[in-house]
Nucleic acid binder design. Structure first.
Length: 353
DNA sequence: TATCCACCGGAATTTATGGAAG
DNA sequence: CTTCCATAAATTCCGGTGGATA
């Protein structure tokens, strides 16, 4: 049923950004100087997950690129070190620095390589305000940044070193879409990626309403509904397909999340999956008894308790595991029993008591 | 109520690894 | 070949927290 799968990819850029006209104008104004060869203003875009902060920045930058000579870079900053960020920018302007240059050497290298106005999108920049990366980039003429974060004030409050620079930035806060607005957006995706007439306006509005205006979720739900309809042999999307689309979309994300994690996480997940739920003490005990067998034919070795806590936290962040019960001694439970572990490290290590 | 204990999670430190320059 | 710089993962250290116990 899906005629163009790319339309539903997370990083797909639509030809038009519906209902963000004002924001686009604001951004273009902030970058007006680039047409004179100067650096643009600094920009901060804030708002909740999945409302199109990144898409807005990329889309507007693309438009700007059609009429001005600029370079741009898109850096995902989550967990990135200052050197990693500077390196990514270097790469975007076509000047790879030596593989292990000192951080300051990379900055010098970058300053020499930037030949025209350059705009750097610092995506997932919530942890960035304290980072030396900002100061280093501030020292490069013709370079300006777009900071993307969830909470504008929280970010500014922590930006001590570069506060002056960013306090004067163009600040944009995006909210969740209204039901009608998001339905428009979903309609555009449907026209681009689905056959005519397989979904109606009422269904789009229902999706938009259920996901509470979060575009990313809405788009994935629409895709899931189309896939379910195809599996069930429907010639168009039925309401039962919409019913099940949300769980299907979440399920897919969870499976992908689990697959993306390293082996240690899989061991912990498999242990939890075996029982469905465990308290912290039993979980650690179980890990200890099972560890040798689980890691036997693996180049990795079992990890200590502190590290297990971090893995567990990651599993929780990925919505694979939840903590329930009192804060003190909570129970860890598998969120989705249909997400199967990829390993069974426990078979040969005896059964549970 | 005061004290104790086990776990949580932030921060600093250690360890392993790898590329590049001298 | 050795040294320098960097990253990533894991461990150590430690203060905070909340339930249990005397």
């Amino acid at each position: 049923m899906i005629t163009d799968p790319r339309v539903f990819e997370d990083d797909h850029l639509p030809r038009e950004m519906l209902h963000r006209e004002g924001a686009i104008e604001t951004l273009l104004r902030a970058w007006d100087h680039t047409r004179l060869g100067e650096a643009g203003d600094e920009v901060i875009i804030a708002g909740p997950s999945g409302v199109g902060k990144t898409a807005l920045a990329r889309h507007t930058l693309k438009r700007l690129g059609e009429r001005a000579a600029i370079d741009h870079a898109h850096v995902r900053c989550l967990g990135a070190t200052p050197a990693t960020i500077l390196r990514a920018v270097c790469q975007a302007v076509g000047a790879e620095p030596p593989g292990n240059a000192a951080t300051e050497a990379i900055q010098t290298h970058l300053a020499e390589s930037v030949a025209r106005p350059t705009i750097v999108i610092l995506d997932e920049a919530d942890d960035l305000p304290e980072s030396p990366a900002l100061e280093l980039m501030a020292g490069v003429p013709q370079l300006s940044t777009v900071v993307i974060t969830h909470d504008l004030n929280h970010w500014l409050a922590r930006a001590t070193n570069t506060h002056d620079r960013y306090a004067g930035a163009t600040q944009l806060t995006l909210g969740r879409y209204g039901v009608a607005e998001l339905a428009d957006i979903l309609g555009a995706r449907a026209r681009a990626g689905l056959p005519r007439g397989v979904v109606d306006r009422g269904q789009l509005e229902r999706i938009a309403d259920t996901v509470a205006g979060v575009a990313r979720e809405g788009i994935q739900a629409l895709r899931a509904a189309a896939e379910l309809a195809a599996e069930r042999g429907h010639s168009r999307i039925e309401s039962e397909d919409v019913d099940d689309s949300f769980e299907q979309a979440r399920h897919r994300i969870r499976c992908a999340n689990l697959q993306s994690l390293p082996y240690h996480h899989h061991v912990l997940y498999a242990i939890l999956f075996e029982s469905g739920q465990l308290d912290g003490v039993t979980l650690h005990d179980r890990y200890d008894t099972v560890a040798e067998a689980a890691y036997a034919d693996h180049h990795l070795t079992p990890v200590g308790k502190r590290s297990r806590r971090n893995k567990l936290k990651k599993l929780i962040a990925y919505d694979l595991v939840a903590r329930e019960g009192p804060k003190h001694d909570p129970t860890y439970v598998v969120v989705d029993a249909d997400v199967e572990p990829s390993i069974q490290p426990l078979r040969e290590a005896g059964s549970l008591k």
